[in-house]
Design a binder for these strands. Structure first.
Lengths: 238, 238
DNA sequence: CGCTGTATTGACCTCCTTCAAATGCGGTGG
DNA sequence: CCACCGCATTTGAAGGAGGTCAATACAGCG
């Protein structure tokens, strides 16, 4: 049930069989429809939420109504591991597709982290990877232009989804609309549309029916100068 | 000596007098010249670095030579609290002005966090605030245009520096060049220049001799829709 | 088979970039 | 105190990436 999480954490920390069992079934799950709010800005959720299936996003809405998506959450990603420390949520979380979400009582998490050093490290590792992704997104927005931005995002998701056990070597389910993509990259949906078309024309991607395929992964990576090191998902030689 | 850190942490967690003493003098300090590297990309530093005075930045350089600054580090900010978990640095850290940096042996940090729950929480809180700042920067780059971006950055620094005990109610030392600013915001230095001029023309800021003054803080905040909640520096009513 | 949301297109506009040159300024040495 | 150097700031002109607005086409679905 929690396999996307366990799978992902395995890339950062060596968990024992017992650790895996402890993580294997905590709390209850909830189904969430596409476009439904999971956690609202300002909330102080009692439980920690974990995405088990589907896509969700962190976002902020400005006073003028513009929305920026600050993270895409895929299976194995936590929504709000931080809220216990920080107090209220300074942003919202919404499902982009139908989602299954686990609700872990805060006490369970606290108990785990107090008694199991390796699990604590694994969770900390996960939050640091989230931060590293955020940094790379900043680079993406600041220094690359639309074509490379999109390509880079597609490459990132390929790696992240593989780590969660989703999709295959050259494609994955992709429920985001062009408006969603625009809000991720900080550009217009009109411009996303035109940029996608040109990527398609160059046969760098095939995006159809809520699924993305990448005919030549190496070519796409080269196109946007993608280096997966920041994801910390490849165990390095010590 | 460590007062900027202690001051800052006090905004997030209630430290006891004893906790403060424990944080008050750890490890040795090092002077770093402006434009000197503090930690290089790919390093695996043995010590944890903490800025005590001056400004530094996190950055990444792309293959084509373009540089994106992903964080400004001011007194009280850690450079690499995360590296112990994550392995190698996936980015570099450079001094933007002459800096004093404390080098805390990793063992000291580990020891502190193993034995003092409140300090652990405080350090964790600090990394979460860093992450929250990163998210807001993403919003800034994605949704605001240059004028508001700059204004927002200036407002953020006013609050952060005050929390570290630097500057006064309406201004602070500001050693960044226009090129640095450009690399923070993901725009050209030429455009930074023209944008600064127009902010000056509207008397929203006074930037001269490496010092920034804000004649009317409320007006500047309103101008860029600044809400300091994301900094988690104001203790909220429970 | 109509409804609703998403994708696509066109025309026009503007913010920001690019390139290149000029000006200003703080520090240093004479 | 002045001349000079290197760096940062400023300016101009021209071009391009991306934005805006609004209409149209399309697709899934009850």
């Amino acid at each position: 049930m929690f396999s996307p999480l366990i799978r992902k954490l395995g890339h950062g920390v060596d968990l024992t069989e017992a650790d895996r069992d402890r993580l294997a079934c905590l709390g209850r799950t909830r189904q969430i429809g596409a476009r439904q709010e999971i956690i609202a800005q300002g909330d102080r959720p009692e439980d920690v939420h974990l995405v088990l299936s589907g896509f969700a996003c962190r976002y902020k809405v400005l006073r003028d109504g513009k929305r920026q998506i600050m993270a895409l959450l895929v299976p194995g990603d936590f929504c709000d591991l931080h809220v216990a420390i920080l107090g209220a949520m300074d942003h919202g979380i919404t499902a982009l597709s139908p989602c299954t979400v686990a609700e872990l009582p805060r006490a369970t998490i606290l108990n785990l982290t107090e008694n199991h050093l390796r699990i604590t490290r694994a969770l900390w590792w996960a939050t640091l990877v989230d931060e590293a992704i955020l940094r790379e997104w900043l680079v993406n927005m600041g220094q690359r232009e639309a074509h490379q931005q999109l390509a880079h995002l597609f490459c990132e998701l390929l790696v992240r989804l593989k780590a969660a056990g989703i999709g295959d070597a050259d494609g994955y389910p992709f429920p985001l609309t062009q408006v969603d993509l625009a809000e991720v990259l900080g550009i217009t949906s009109v411009h996303v549309n035109r940029t996608l078309q040109s990527l398609r024309d160059e046969n760098l991607i095939v995006l159809r029916g809520r699924r993305l395929n990448i005919p030549d992964v190496e070519r796409l990576k080269a196109y946007c100068d993608f280096d997966p090191a920041y994801l910390h998902l490849v165990k390095r030689v010590e």
